[in-house]
Design a protein around this nucleic acid. Structure first.
Lengths: 227, 227
DNA sequence: CTAATATTCAAACGTTCGTTTGAATTCAGT
DNA sequence: ACTGAATTCAAACGAACGTTTGAATATTAG
């Protein structure tokens, strides 16, 4: 009741979520049949519908399991840093690292499938399905608002729409970097043995993003067309 | 034979390609049934298999139709610019604009479906299917090599692997920006009536990418782990 | 005009999909 | 140990998938 009974209570659901994470990453949502998924998880075909209701509900559960704690941690990190700064605005690099840190560090967690999830997450930002994108957008909304506020405080001189675009660019760079962790060799013959060092990647990415965020703004001639 | 006969000769194939472009963008490859595709194109269900062989072959044809001329144009632009420079290396901004220009300007072509294709292309870089990614990678390879060479000439002091990473980041930013042309509002309440001004977007993106490409490199302490 | 080729068409093929069913089994509370 | 709920299981459901077929039609060439 206390030890042996508690564990298998949700074991089936965990096995399903783990298998879904891996297979969704490898083959996509529509490319992953329920039969393959349940076989990989070692459960009965009907288990997904019994525990989650439908395949779509399973997809949502896969994202909620990791994304909710991840974004909660991001918001908590920003809150803590601002409190420590005592009213002073944070530096852009601090904010950027607080945002990209949790995702990048989850790459190293190949043990518990965090790496699978991150890659899955990266390519789901641009999923064809409107419902899927809406789901991801909804899960991200609170954290996004929080970070936007932090950036506005750090860069009070930057116009609102300019900031939105640069956040868009930064978000895209992160998403693609996470999604295409095996596609770097597309550009150059990067040896596949070069395993990802998350700390090094974080440093490289942070340097790139900080520079982009603080890039020279458009001249007045072009900028007035944006207003 | 000269006017009425020439046009309908390939009209069916063009209608199929146009419909595929739009529907693949909206629903993905696996999410687009042949019956919907052929109905949208106004052709018979068997027409795709007759003219292209299979659905997979159609996917390849969709990309080849636009991507081959696009990358040819990119390479030609670089060649021309280098010739005009007379041996002098090009500026990073020149190279970046030569790369992102063709794609961004195709966004404005909503008439002939170029906008559809660009969004489709953006999200296919991170497609789950290995075959699809390999196809895209192969179509991009020549242009990628050409631009890598141009960057190496423009930035001789930058280490090879550092350049590869930064090209990766830049490529990701462009891909996501193209793919998520309706997701900017995810970050902020960007009014949907704000139509894309491709020239303005190109200026914003170029500024961001140039800054990122020229960002300060990692210190020696971190850099030696990369070697 | 006629014969040969190219294309279109309706219909059906076999397969695979997500989901449902109802009985069998395991578990928890008394 | 016994009862009721929770879970697992094999089997089947109807629908939708990509593809194939062979006849009908349109196009080209001699």
């Amino acid at each position: 009741m206390t030890l042996r009974a508690v564990k298998p209570r949700h074991e089936t659901q965990v096995r399903i979520l783990d298998a879904a994470e891996e297979l969704f990453m490898q083959h996509g949502f529509e490319g992953t049949p329920m039969r393959l998924l349940t076989a990989r998880a070692g459960v009965n075909l009907a288990a997904v519908n019994y525990h989650f209701g439908s395949k779509d509900a399973l997809i949502e559960a896969v994202f909620r399991r990791r994304l909710d704690p991840m974004n909660t941690a991001r918001i908590a990190a920003i809150d803590r840093m601002e409190k420590e700064a005592g009213g002073q605005p944070l530096s852009p690099e601090q904010i950027i690292r607080a945002f990209i840190g949790p995702g990048l560090r989850m790459i190293e967690d190949s043990r518990n499938g965090g790496r699978n999830f991150i890659r899955l997450l990266g390519r789901t930002y641009t999923d064809p399905s409107r419902e899927i994108r809406a789901l991801i957008g909804g899960l991200y909304a609170p954290a996004m608002e929080r970070f936007k506020a932090a950036f506005e405080r750090a860069l009070p001189q930057m116009p609102r729409d300019e900031l939105v675009w640069r956040m868009h660019f930064m978000f895209g760079t992160l998403a693609y970097t996470l999604a295409a962790t095996d596609t770097v060799q597309l550009i150059a013959g990067c040896k596949p043995e070069d395993r990802y060092d998350a700390r090094l990647l974080e440093a490289r990415l942070a340097s790139f993003l900080v520079a982009g965020l603080l890039a020279p703004q458009l001249g007045a001639k072009d900028a007035k067309k944006a207003a």
